[in-house]
Each structure stands twice: as C-alpha cells, then as structure tokens.
C-alpha cells in the first residue's frame, strides 16, 4: 500500500550537471515495496505556491532503505527541489502507479531518453534478478555526454554496457535512439521498455510496431493528485476514452494508446 510520509530525509544530493540532480531519500516503507516504473509525488515547498506535488519516477532503491529520484530543473518546483540540502526533509507520497511488467521469455531492451532514463536503472536491476540468464540491452539518449556519463557508469556497475545516442554527438551515436535500435540485433521477439520525451516514445512505438515487438511505455502527463482522484492525468486509449496515468499507468502497453503520428 502506498505511503504518505511528511518527513522523508534527503541523505545525499548528487549534481550531475547544472540542472540535473539526483536525490537519495531515506524511507524503508517506500523503498521496500517500490517496483520499477512506479513514481512518488513530492511536495517541493511548504507554502501554497507552488501548490501541487510534483511526480518523479523512482530511479533506484537500495537495501530496502533508500530510494533515489533523478530530475531536471524545468520550472519552479524542480528549481526549489534543486536548492534542498542534505539532511532536510521532504513530504513524499508513494510508491504510486503500476510499474513495468518484466517478461523473461523474450529478449528485453530498455530505451531511455533524458530524464526518462530515471526508472530504467531500477528496472535493469530487477530484471537481472528476475531473468539472470538474459541481461537486457540498454539504449540511452540525451542532449550531451555530460548528462549521460554517470548514468552509463551506473549501468556498467550492473554489468550492462549501454548503447548511447546524443543530440550533439558528444557520446555515442550522433542522433536518435531509434537510429541505434535499427542497427541492433534484437531477434524475432523483443520486449521494449521505454521512457522518455513523447516524440521519442512515439518513434520507438512505431519501430516496435513495424517489427511486431511488444512495447511498454511510461507516460508523462500533468498530475494533481497521483492517486486517481483528480482525473487530470489522462492519456487517450485506442479502445476509446481515456486511461489515467497515475492509476492505470504510468506504464502502458504502447498498442493500447492513441499515438499522433505526424
């Protein structure tokens, strides 16, 4: 059951770049039950402005004691969060959402872009535990080398060497992750686990559709509550109507969603 912890201590802050940080938070309650792909809602300040909590994927857990969030400063909430100090407390609600479904029968491929890489480290760890004989293929994309270095290293620590793509060509392939995917031998059956900017997820979905691969995507929407109460976090679904990213997702089977292909 998800927890509401008004005082979750920040035990470590790592600054990867000017605007990308990773927080380690201490919460046995959350760390011990979290699944890869789930998220937490964090209150970034104590006042009425900003008012709402902000959603962040759980990027990793350790020893059933700590969990991490990796985030980029894009606005007021994340900017306040970036000014927190070690030892301070945050109000956290979670873990929330469904998480990825790990399938050991197929070859697995993790595809992350930008901050979408956050949940994939947690997923990779769980996968290695669940399917030790079939380590996943990892493909990561971002703006530049700076953003990726530590993450690539984290995957390497798990024994996984990631394929990379950067917008400026400073690390790995100069271009898109889908261009990297096209060059890989993924076999006849491959399950893809994707999280990243919407255009990237659309491209990976189309790639998977063409090859008849299954594809799980983690969707980002605006969220007010994170627990199914506000009905704000909708994503259009193929059968008509909407799914709710916080309770039906954030992970969806890409086939079940409506994709706007330009």
């Amino acid at each position: 059951m998800s927890q509401f912890q008004e005082k979750t201590q920040i035990t470590r802050i790592e600054r990867f770049t000017e605007d990308i940080l990773r927080l380690t938070l201490e919460s046995p309650e959350i760390a011990s039950i979290a699944k890869p792909g789930q998220f937490v809602m964090i209150r970034t300040g104590n006042s009425s402005d900003p008012l709402l909590r902000r959603p962040f994927s759980i990027s990793q857990t350790s020893n059933n004691l700590h969990f991490q969030v990796l985030f980029k400063v894009v606005g007021r909430g994340t900017s306040i969060l970036a000014h927190c100090r070690e030892g301070e407390f945050l109000s956290v609600l979670g873990p929330l959402g469904n998480g990825f479904t790990i399938d050991c029968r197929n070859r697995n491929c993790l595809v992350g872009g930008g901050m979408g890489i956050a949940p994939l480290l947690f997923l990779a760890k769980a996968m290695l535990r669940k399917c030790p004989d079939t380590p996943p293929i990892v493909v990561l994309g971002s703006r530049n080398r700076e953003e990726l270095t530590t993450l690539v290293y984290d995957f390497a620590e798990l024994g996984l060497s990631a394929y990379t793509a950067t917008d400026d060509g400073s690390l790995g392939h100069h271009g898109l992750v889908t261009e990297v995917l096209e060059t890989l031998d993924l076999g006849a059956d491959c399950t893809n686990y994707v999280c990243g900017p919407h255009p990237m997820m659309t491209a990976v979905h189309l790639f998977c559709k063409k090859r008849n691969y299954s594809c799980q995507v983690s969707m980002e929407t605006s969220m007010a509550c994170g627990m199914g109460a506000c009905l704000g976090c909708i994503v259009p679904v193929e059968k008509g109507g909407y799914g709710h990213a916080c309770t039906d997702g954030p992970v969806f089977d890409a086939k079940e969603l409506v994709w706007e292909v330009k």
Partner: peptide, 18 residues
C-alpha cells in the same frame, strides 16, 4: 461521460485550473 481532452489541469498562483 469521457470528459475533456488533455491537458485538463494546470497549476496557477496558489491554485489550479481544471
């Protein structure tokens, strides 16, 4: 009722629009 298309909510100063 299916409701409105997204985005459905946005935060404003000390409040939200839905």
């Amino acid at each position: 009722r299916p409701g409105n298309p997204p985005p459905r909510i946005v935060e404003t100063s000390c409040g939200m629009l839905n």
